[in-house]
Simulated scan of single mutants.
Amino acid sequence: MAAHFALLIDPAPVQDDREDFAATFQAVDSSAPALSVGELSTQRGDGIFETIGVVGGHPQEATAHLERLAHSARLCDLPAPNLRQWRQAVTRAAAECGPGEGAIKLILSRGVEQGPAPTAWVTASLSPDHAAARTRGIRVVTLDRGIDAGAAERAPWLLLGAKTLSYAMNMAALREAHRRGADDAIFVTSDGLVLEGPTSSVVLRFGDRYVTPATGTGILHGTTQMSLFDHLHATGRAAAYESVPVAALTEADAAWLVSSVRLAAPVTAVDGVEIPADADETASFNRYLLSPRD
């Protein structure tokens, strides 16, 4: 494929039950102008997105990503996306990704200020090479997100459970991690609970139990983490959502950051404290995550 592929979408109302939405898609030159300067996604980050990993032309966990797109739309008071239309757009974009690993981004914006709304588009691109992170692992630092564990319930307007385009803080956290000599970060609450990575979910193993932070604290429900937990349950292992204190990060028998494109990256150190990495289990996780999944 070319470096990038872009598809503009004329959003259909959720009640539109047509079988074929091809007429609502317009492939455009991804290097040419396609959006208005009044677009609120760029002016204010006022919109939502999803990133779907693609393996061999197959979009991974497309259903979960589309359901999360709809969930974010509800939280942000955006028009409900027609998921049949979006699924067809995902299929169209995935066909452009070729035989290797790729990534699809779904973007739904509030549109143009004082103009038509919403604006929607899909892009596809080749994935970076994440082999080193998957095999050698990553070093992380913990960063205070500036909220306590009850903030999401107390202040829903913070949109803590939505995947919005307002990602400046997440990117700033990654830069801070790099300044501290780490590869990635894990957000924690001001009252000492583990949240998530800027672009990933946290999974910990204690003995034969697997744990991820409970979503009631306002973290994003990770599609890759959910799929991995389904796999763990299907293979007879215990996996649960719990409140995880920060101290547990260095007490775990193994830890991973999991995401749709990088997949499972073992954590080898937290705030400079070395923790064990399980190379065999990481390889098993990634074999599963690279297998076709809907």
Rank of each mutant, 00 (worst) to 15 (best):
M1S: 15
A3E: 15
D10S: 15
Q26M: 11
S30W: 14
A32F: 06
S36A: 14
L40I: 00
I48K: 06
I52Y: 09
G57I: 03
L66H: 04
R68Y: 13
L69V: 02
D77M: 10
Q85E: 15
W86T: 00
W86Q: 01
A94P: 07
E96T: 15
R110K: 15
T119N: 13
A131P: 00
T142C: 12
T142K: 01
G146A: 08
A149S: 15
A151N: 02
R154A: 15
A155I: 07
G161E: 15
A162R: 03
K163M: 09
M169Q: 13
M171D: 10
L174T: 01
A177H: 01
A182H: 00
F187E: 06
G192T: 04
L193T: 01
F206L: 12
T215E: 14
T217V: 04
D230P: 02
D230N: 12
T235Q: 11
A240G: 01
S243Q: 13
P245Y: 11
A252K: 02
D253S: 05
W256C: 10
S260V: 00
P266K: 10
V267D: 02
I275S: 06
I275F: 11
A279C: 00
T282P: 05
A283V: 00
F285I: 01
N286H: 03
D294N: 14
